[in-house]
Amino acid sequence: MTESDAACLAAAARGDGAAFTQIVDAHERAVYRFVQSLGLRGADADDALQETFIAAWRAAGTFRGEGSARSWLLAIARNVVRHATRRHVGEPADFESLDDIALAAGWGRDPLEEVAERQRADLVQRALARLSPEDREILVLRELEDLSGEDTAAALGLSLAAMKSRLHRARLRLTAALRAALPEDDRNG
């Protein structure tokens, strides 16, 4: 977190619109990319962008600096998207055992070494789109937005331990989804 972000939010909490505009300038592209990565497009993405920064402006005084300003904004964006898509907010129950996820991901079978890098990259993106919203958002935050573990946990409202557990399962589910997307001949060894 830059010192200027914290200072800008503190000033915004005192009613300084110009200071908050600096926050918008610095982070609007990341927020816009994030809401799109959660599946919103067009007018829905535009609305989510607006609602996120309006909510952030009104809540600027609640920023405590425990994580980065960006993770704080992305946490707000996540809640905005969830409200917009009327999803149940809360940690999903992980009824699937780690063993089952790992077996589906190919533990015990030959790897996918022969798959070309480009094919794998394209297939991974398609597999990501098929994951649950909870799995997709944590992978987007940690792997694509490159937030730290602590900032990812903060953005999701999770303890660090809970974030790590969810991330581990999401990574294995992505690997399983990728395997499912491969042609039959490329899966088994």
């Binding site: 991901a105 996918l112 794998r120 297939l123 992978l139 792997e143 690997t175």
Partner: peptide, 12 residues
């Protein structure tokens, strides 16, 4: 398996 998961994350 570990190499496969690592390669999946690298592709992502």
């Amino acid at each position: 398996f570990g190499a496969d998961v690592a390669a999946t994350m690298q592709a992502l």
